[in-house]
Design a protein around this nucleic acid. Structure first.
Lengths: 246, 246
DNA sequence: CAGCTCATGTAAAGGTCGTTCACATGAGCT
DNA sequence: AGCTCATGTGAACGACCTTTACATGAGCTG
């Protein structure tokens, strides 16, 4: 009958010892499998080998567990974006695009976190810690935009950095949501989500007056480590950001 | 005891007469209130005044109801986008921006549909009719992008229309998801979602070489009804798409 | 109009969940 | 050794989803 359960109990004793962490891990796995909507408090408890009531000793309710995961997600998100930004090295534009790629990579590689953060319906502003984590992550993008805005070529009006940050965020989030996750990824596209976002950002930056005449997928060494003082938007780059127009 | 129920029954007889439609309407209202995740099959049945089992005569399960709503949503979405596009009148760029606004307006004014379409976790590719409706809606954007791509100023490489369409879609979806709905709308922004998206699209179009020297919110009559043959990207428009940089 | 049929609705029941409550256990401190 | 309190258990409640056997009556057939 309750053979497994008894054995589990024998293995770990009456007290689990690290149930909170075990529940978070279990939930993460379940969300990755079935989405935040399909994830079940009871399932997480089962997976941790405890009764259905045990989780209530560590989380007020199911939403609080979800909220905790979202918060953790934002923290990891921030650290990945920060690593990608690398304080603007080797040059601002390159680093900026790396942030965009990191955004997509996170959405792809951490579907459970991404789901909890953006698709689970968790009200971000209800939990101050969660809200703070969310803002910290966004601040990476904001800081990057700030630096980028400071580089606008002379003669070009300087865009508000906040606006740029919001624009970039919306592009990354839009691409990730629509094309880079779960079923949505199955839409047949003429290019990969990464390429799509990279082209989008490059075109956008060019619209702001930035010289963006690098090859998108080119692996050649950084041609100019010092981007400022490049030619102002006089002509059109040889190849569009979408590769050979053939 | 079951006073209300008996009375209801007396009013409408044993057979409802139009239960399927009533369920769809009830579900729409419930989703608008509590989101697709919180919406309940039983609740919809109650609201229609029938037993909890009755809906199963019209929908295989809860997911099929949700899927039907999503499909209906895509159909209305398509017609609103089509009306906004108006076949490119009075000029392509103006009409294009109107489509972007229509996207946001739909997300704002039809939260229930938008939720079912993009946030309910309904697998779009599982239902052929739903998939077709979704593609029809996207095709409006695609067609608009096609026309816009054909207008690229001479000397500018012509971007693939499909890519443009995907870019625009991702921007609109990103802005709508992040800033224009529910709790997300509470984030304090320096500008409205509409303005944010409009500026984003304008900058993007300028990045493609389009002349976009119109005032964003300006209501002045269309200066040039014939956009082609405008100056190639020689200079920078007087005021940025984000208004006075003051 | 009588009678039949079948789409449509009902009640009841089984299974799962979220959540609460009274009670059990045992780790750590005194 | 004994106490305490955080942590876990089992039972129970109500809500939901879904299936099943049965009830109703609208519309057709003769």
């Amino acid at each position: 009958m309750s053979w497994r359960k008894e054995q589990r109990r024998a293995e770990r004793g009456y007290h689990h010892g690290n149930l909170k962490e075990a529940l978070l891990q279990a939930a993460l796995g379940l969300i990755a499998e079935k989405g935040a909507a399909g994830f079940t408090f009871a399932d997480a408890a089962r997976m941790a080998g405890v009764s259905a009531a045990a989780p209530y000793r560590h989380f007020r309710d199911r939403d609080e567990l979800l909220s905790s995961i979202a918060q953790r997600g934002f923290e990891q998100f921030e650290s990945r974006l920060a690593a990608a930004w690398d304080d603007g090295r080797p040059d601002t534009v390159t680093a900026f695009e790396r942030v965009g790629k990191a955004y997509l990579a996170f959405a792809r590689e951490e579907p459970a976190f991404y789901n909890a953060m953006f698709e689970s319906g968790v009200p971000v502003d209800a939990n101050p810690a969660l809200q703070a984590a969310s803002e910290s992550a966004f601040n990476i993008i904001r800081a990057a935009a700030e630096r980028l805005a400071a580089l606008t070529p002379p003669g070009t009006p300087r865009p508000p950095a906040m606006m740029m940050a919001l624009h970039i965020w919306s592009m990354a989030h839009g691409v990730a949501s629509l094309f880079s996750r779960g079923d949505a990824a199955r839409r047949k596209l003429p290019m990969s989500p990464d390429e799509l976002l990279e082209a989008e950002v490059l075109i956008y930056l060019r619209g702001l007056g930035f010289p963006t005449d690098r090859r998108p997928a080119g692996k050649s060494a950084e041609p100019p480590p010092v981007p400022p003082e490049a030619s102002s938007g006089s002509g059109v780059p040889p190849g569009g950001p979408w590769g050979k127009p053939k």
